[in-house]
C-alpha cells in the first residue's frame, strides 16, 4: 500500500520534472511527430490499394513511440540518475525499489498516452490515417499499448545497467533504437526488407508491435501483404509476453543503485 502510494507520488513528480526539461520533451515527445511530418511529406506513394506509405508509417511510429517513451527514455535517464547520485540519495530513505519502478512506469504511461494522442491526431489530420471504428480494433490497440509499454519499461530498466556512464548512455541506446526501427519496418515496408533483416527483427518486440499496429490502422485487405500472409496477433502476444518476463527478471536481478 505504502509502496503504491509512494510510487504514484514519485510518478507525478517524475512527470513534472520531465515536462520542465526542454530537451527531453522535444527529443522524446515531439521527435516522432517531426519524423512523421518529414517521412509523410516525402513519401506520398501508395504501397497497396488504398494504403499510402504515410499511413503505413504512422502505424510504425505509434509502435516506435512505445520504444521511445519506455526503453529509450529509461535506458538513458536511469544511468544519469545513477551517475548524479539521485539513486543513491533515494536508497538511504524509507522507500522501496518497487516504488521507484512504479514511478517510472507511471511516467512512461503518461508519456505514451501523450505521444500516441499526438501521433494519432497528427496522422489523422494530415496523413489520411484512418482512426479505427470497430471495437475489435480498439481492443487490439489497447492490449498492444499495454503489453508493449510494459515490455518497453522493464527492458529499459534492465538495459540501464549497460551504459558505463550517464553521459554516454544516449550514444549507446539511441543507435540501437534507430537500427531496430529500420529493421522492424518503421521507415520501410517490412516485407520489402532483406530476409536476414526480417529474421533478425523478428527476435525483438518492435517488429511485432509495428505489425500489430498495422492490423489496427490499415485495411484488413493489407494482411495478405505481410510476410506471413496474416497479422499474426497471437504470436505477437506470445513474443511480447516472453520479452516482458525476460525484462522483468533482468531488471530485478541486475538493478543497481550506484556505479560501483
Amino acid at each position: 500500500m505504502k509502496t503504491l502510494k509512494l510510487g504514484l507520488l514519485r510518478g507525478r513528480m517524475e512527470v513534472k520534472v520531465f515536462m520542465r526539461g526542454r530537451e527531453s520533451v522535444v527529443f522524446t515527445l515531439l521527435f516522432p511527430v517531426i519524423l512523421l511530418f518529414i517521412f509523410g511529406s516525402v513519401f506520398q506513394n501508395t504501397i497497396a490499394p488504398g494504403v499510402t506509405f504515410s499511413q503505413y508509417f504512422v502505424a510504425g511510429m505509434i509502435a516506435s513511440g512505445l520504444v521511445n517513451t519506455g526503453f529509450q527514455q529509461l535506458a538513458i535517464t536511469i544511468p544519469m540518475e545513477r551517475e548524479f547520485g539521485t539513486l543513491k540519495r533515494l536508497r538511504g530513505r524509507p522507500i522501496s525499489v518497487s516504488a521507484y519502478f512504479i514511478g517510472k512506469a507511471y511516467l512512461v504511461t503518461i508519456l505514451m498516452i501523450l505521444q500516441t494522442a499526438l501521433l494519432l491526431g497528427f496522422g489523422a489530420a494530415f496523413f489520411g490515417l484512418d482512426i479505427p471504428t470497430t471495437s475489435g480494433k480498439w481492443i487490439t490497440f489497447t492490449w498492444l499499448i499495454l503489453l508493449g509499454s510494459a515490455c518497453s519499461t522493464v527492458l529499459g530498466i534492465a538495459f540501464s545497467v549497460v551504459p558505463k556512464s550517464g553521459r554516454g548512455a544516449s550514444a549507446i541506446v539511441s543507435p540501437i533504437v534507430i537500427i531496430l526501427q529500420f529493421f522492424s519496418g518503421v521507415f520501410f515496408v517490412f516485407s520489402e526488407l532483406p530476409i536476414w533483416m526480417q529474421q533478425f527483427a523478428a527476435l525483438f518486440p518492435l517488429k511485432w508491435l509495428t505489425q500489430g499496429m498495422r492490423s489496427v490502422f490499415l485495411p484488413e485487405s493489407f494482411a495478405t501483404q505481410e510476410v506471413a500472409g496474416n497479422w499474426e496477433l497471437g504470436r505477437t502476444a506470445i513474443i511480447l509476453t516472453l520479452w516482458l518476463i525476460i525484462g522483468l527478471i533482468l531488471s530485478i536481478k541486475t538493478f543497481k543503485w550506484s556505479e560501483e
Partner: peptide, 12 residues
C-alpha cells in the same frame, strides 16, 4: 543521511 556530494540537478 547527507551524502558527500550530489550533483543531480533536478528541475524541482
Amino acid at each position: 543521511i547527507v551524502l558527500q556530494s550530489t550533483t543531480d540537478a533536478a528541475d524541482l
